[in-house]
């Protein structure tokens, strides 16, 4: 999952994971930055390196589990070296802070350690679907590009081997796809289009449908003048308080206005980016909790259903 700050990337990661689980796929969410708030969307505390079950399966839908964990470059390096018979040097690399120096010498080394770990989880078949909540902003491109850049810098050794494996994963569109998240506003739409083309050109990664988050669901029969509001109230035999008709009309205008702006941006996105769109409804509640994630997941499944007829 990739997207700029403020578009709700983590919410959509939670949504996709829950949707996959509802469809019967065991799902693992991998977080790489920490403090994302993912766990709280499932009503749980912060994640750690150890895997936890965020949302147990079962129930009337026969859903699968959603599990989650955090990855850090330091821990991934230690694990990698220990698995490859280099446990003596591994402790020293981390204890001396050499990883920082090495990471500076070959930027992308931390990224490749993280992606290498994801690749290992995928190879081990830990889940039917792994959802990686990628770093925000333009970092997503750098992050995914790390494998290619590292092959130029580091020509031998285990890091080189790791970079090759990761590149193979990224380029295999059956194993790995990037789902971009955006919102129907001007700058985020521009950035999503730019990011999509960079990812295809520079990383060679396959793109899944793009998720348009925060779309205002329509409310039928909104009228926009106080007189029309009063007529509607009279029809239902409702007495309005002073000033209420104006506020109801103003709120209706606001909704319709924003919906028109959003529709224009959704069209621009479709024109600029030939990807199927999955539109998720704006959440009016204060917090995204398990109930909202569930509602969003069902909305996502309905959208996927409606895309199923399209040639993907």
């Amino acid at each position: 999952m990739a997207g700029k700050g403020g578009v709700g990337k983590t919410t959509v990661s939670a949504t996709l994971a829950r949707a996959a689980a509802l469809a019967g796929l065991s799902t693992l969410v991998v977080e790489v930055e920490g403090r994302s708030g993912l766990a709280s969307m499932f009503g749980q505390g912060e994640l750690g390196y150890e895997e936890v079950v965020l949302s147990p399966g079962g129930g009337p839908d026969g859903a699968a589990d959603v599990r989650a964990r955090t990855l850090t470059a330091d821990a991934a390096l230690l694990e990698y070296l220990e698995d490859h018979g280099m446990s003596r040097i591994s402790r020293r690399l981390v204890a001396t802070g050499a990883l920082d120096v090495v990471a500076t010498a070959a930027p992308g080394i931390k990224d490749i350690l993280l992606l290498g770990k994801v690749k290992q989880l995928e190879r081990a078949g830990v889940a039917d679907l792994i959802v990686l909540d990628a770093p925000a902003a333009g970092h997503a491109i750098t992050f995914l590009q790390s494998a290619r850049s590292l092959l130029d810098t580091v020509s031998v050794g285990p890091i080189n081997a790791q970079a090759r494996d990761v590149l193979e994963l990224l380029e295999d569109h059956r194993r790995c796809q990037v789902v971009l998240v955006t919102i129907p506003e001007e700058t985020p739409v521009n950035e999503a289009v730019e990011t999509a083309f960079s990812l295809e050109d520079r990383v060679g990664v396959g793109l899944g449908p793009i998720v348009v988050n925060g779309v205002y669901p329509p409310v039928d029969g909104l009228v926009t003048t106080p007189a029309e509001v009063e007529a509607a109230a009279a029809e239902a035999g409702v007495a309005l308080r002073p000033g209420e008709a104006e506020v109801l009309a103003e709120a209706a205008r606001f909704r319709l206005d924003r919906m028109a702006l959003q529709a224009a941006q959704i069209e621009r996105l479709a024109a600029g980016l030939p990807l199927p769109q999955i539109r998720l409804p704006f959440q009016f509640t204060a917090e995204i909790g398990p109930a909202e994630v569930d509602a969003l997941a069902r909305a996502l499944l309905a959208e996927v259903e409606s895309l199923a007829g399209l040639p993907l």
Binding site: V219, G221, V223, A232, E235, A251, R255, F284, T285, A286
Partner: peptide
Amino acid sequence: GTAIGALYRNLADFQAVAGS
């Protein structure tokens, strides 16, 4: 189900957002 109900629904949505 009524027209005024839809207007209240919409207002409730935005009052919830503004409140949070």
